[in-house]
Design a protein around this nucleic acid. Sequence first.
DNA 1: GCTCGGCAACTAACTGGTTAGTCGGCTATC
DNA 2: GATAGCCGACTAACCAGTTAGTTGCCGAGC
Lengths: 191, 191
Amino acid sequence: MARDAEDTRRRLLAAAADEFAQRGIAGARVDRIAAAAGANKALIYTYFGNKDQLFDAVFDALVVSTVAEVPIDPGDLPEYAGRLFDRNQTHPQALRLLLWHSLERGGMVALPEAVALSNADKAAAIAAAQRAGRLPDRYPPEELLLLVVALSMLGSAELAPADGPEALSRRRQTVTDAVARLVARDREEQR
Amino acid sequence: MARDAEDTRRRLLAAAADEFAQRGIAGARVDRIAAAAGANKALIYTYFGNKDQLFDAVFDALVVSTVAEVPIDPGDLPEYAGRLFDRNQTHPQALRLLLWHSLERGGMVALPEAVALSNADKAAAIAAAQRAGRLPDRYPPEELLLLVVALSMLGSAELAPADGPEALSRRRQTVTDAVARLVARDREEQR
DNA sequence: GCTCGGCAACTAACTGGTTAGTCGGCTATC
DNA sequence: GATAGCCGACTAACCAGTTAGTTGCCGAGC
């Protein structure tokens, strides 16, 4: 086997993402990760430090890729919710890792910097759209963002299993429609 | 100390609820549970079988008490959402245990019978209200229930930490208002 | 073009501590 | 004194992290 530290690192990270997503931090086994990556356990410690830091590396990578792949569109929150919904379908790992993180780490203070930053950005984008009149201002920006994220979690097979593709697309329709209602104008302020 | 098997059982169950809520199944330590309950570890095995069955006992008790304490009111879903929201405040254990369960157990099939039953009941109540015209039928009953439950999760300090009591009551207001919008009549069908 | 030395990448085996689960006996109570 | 309730001590397995040593690669020197 060719020696390629960078590639080994990547393999370990991918295997760790699977293991942590499936079993959480406490349930994950370092030996299993190494075996799945086809690497030696000791490499985990040379590359990542320890089990916890390995989880951090996995989680950070997840946050970065999610933020990159699902940019917010304050002008069309229903569509944004739909895309988050879809991502929970295509990346079932993601929500699980997020949940493990909040359960096993979240001393409810421990929001990782990357998440906090991206949330702040998104809330700012929503606030700007509200000032511009493109979104109603009945909810504070942070809470509107929370509403959207909470609803898009229904795309997760974990929390809300849907049976069959037609049930799934109906579910998606429900979610985007719900967000549309949340950001709809009241009658008196309709254009 | 007086010998009272029933009481010891209760203490073990309560201590287990704390431990499992905080650390999950894999992270929970049987010795810690016994110590917290002021009982001997071996009693866990005589009363509950093993660690997993102890978790089941904790979880079942949680489902039973939740269903009993927060009855659904299909005629006033916003208020129902508000009460679920409040319960997530007063019983932070509950949502955590639910999440642990879905992460560590949920082969996405493993919905415990009690949960499935109570969900079916609630969905049926919603469906009846829809037929009676007391709720709009734009969403299938199961999905409407999901929407309400998802939104009420914002009352959890885990998933959506709120700082300060005023932020919390604003959050509650947001949630009940959001549910109200979801079940509001469209203009043309307004009474 | 060859080789040889140094080093980064990698490995197998081990360690120390932890943990779920068990077992034989003790004790309060009736 | 019978028995349900309880306990201390034990075990076998497990697991994160370490260490001493091996292997393949690459560039300097000839």
